[in-house]
Write a protein that binds this DNA or RNA. Structure first.
Length: 277
DNA sequence: CTCCAGGTACTAA
DNA sequence: TTAGTACCTGGA
């Protein structure tokens, strides 16, 4: 494995929190899956990790992009330290990061997240990967990639439902078919936030919150806070926003308040209220 | 057993 | 434009 110096990076919350459902931790090893590879991480403590990629080994470029090692983290932290709530969150759960996950995987995963809880989503994605992903053996352990888009597109609704995803099976299949038949990623590459969102909202099963998650966790829109019930509660109860405020208006307020880093602030607040409850 | 959490699509006012 | 409701699963 390769050693890397990785300061201010809360691996456990970042990989196992609400932004990715494709990682698991066995007490020593973090294993993460994409549609074509598996990442193995061991946290050595003292800001050091061991890492390896499979099947292509030593893919440092991938690691740098995926973990967003080029962000100026201290600058972000300085910008969002605005009040006692966020400061408490950052002190309680320090060093949360935002990943840049693959677009297809993120879109398909977050379709499963709607009206669902994190534990159940993880379980479903694990079923899907074990049944329809590719097996990669690492030190005697079998790890599975996330199923390829065209594989999901060609599964029957009934087969998809075996992964306990309920009525979302139809949305998942339709989305996979569309992703497979179009080059959406290229199409949205040069669009601004509003246009990307408009495009994502045309998918069945993708609404305001899920489209925001896709934009934040795979497209690096740092100025968006996905507003699920938890995030809304925070901003209504702690920041005094009107419960009747419209989704977009609430987002604009949050982003202005956190000076363009609403996504990062939102992660701290979200994970903080999640562990508190 | 019933009740509830969790976003989106759909329908009706 | 807004309000209400069904959807599926797992856990209390």
């Amino acid at each position: 494995m390769n050693k890397m110096y990785l300061p201010n990076y809360n691996l456990s919350i970042t990989l196992l929190g609400g932004q990715s459902f494709s990682w698991h931790f066995d007490g020593e090893n973090y294993f993460g899956s994409t549609q074509d590879r598996v990442i193995h991480i061991i946290d050595l403590g003292r800001n050091e990790i061991l890492w390896q990629t499979y099947p292509q080994n030593n893919d440092e470029n991938f690691i740098k992009k995926y973990f967003r090692l080029d962000v100026n983290y201290n600058q972000i932290i300085r910008k969002i330290q605005k009040d006692e709530h966020i400061n408490t969150a950052m002190k309680t759960i320090p060093d949360i990061r935002i990943l840049k996950q693959d677009f297809d995987l993120t879109l398909l995963s977050f379709i499963l997240s709607s009206n669902n809880n994190i534990k159940a989503i993880r379980k479903s994605i694990r079923y899907l990967s074990e049944n329809y992903g590719e097996k990669i053996s690492i030190e005697g352990k079998n790890i599975f990639t996330f199923p390829k888009t065209n594989v999901i597109a060609n599964l029957s609704i009934d087969d998809l439902k075996k992964s306990r995803i309920g009525y979302r099976a139809k949305f998942l299949k339709e989305a996979a078919q569309r992703l497979h038949n179009t080059n959406l990623k290229n199409h949205i590459e040069n669009l601004d936030a509003d246009d990307v969102k408009t495009e994502l909202l045309t998918f069945n099963g993708i609404g305001d919150k899920v489209s925001d998650c896709i934009m934040v966790f795979s497209l690096m829109f740092d100025n968006i806070t996905p507003l699920d019930v938890w995030a809304k509660k925070v901003f209504i109860n702690l920041y005094g926003l009107d419960p009747k405020m419209k989704y977009n208006d609430m987002q604009s307020w949050i982003n202005e308040y956190f000076e363009g880093f609403a996504a990062w602030a939102g992660q701290f607040l979200f994970e903080w209220v999640r562990i508190k409850s």
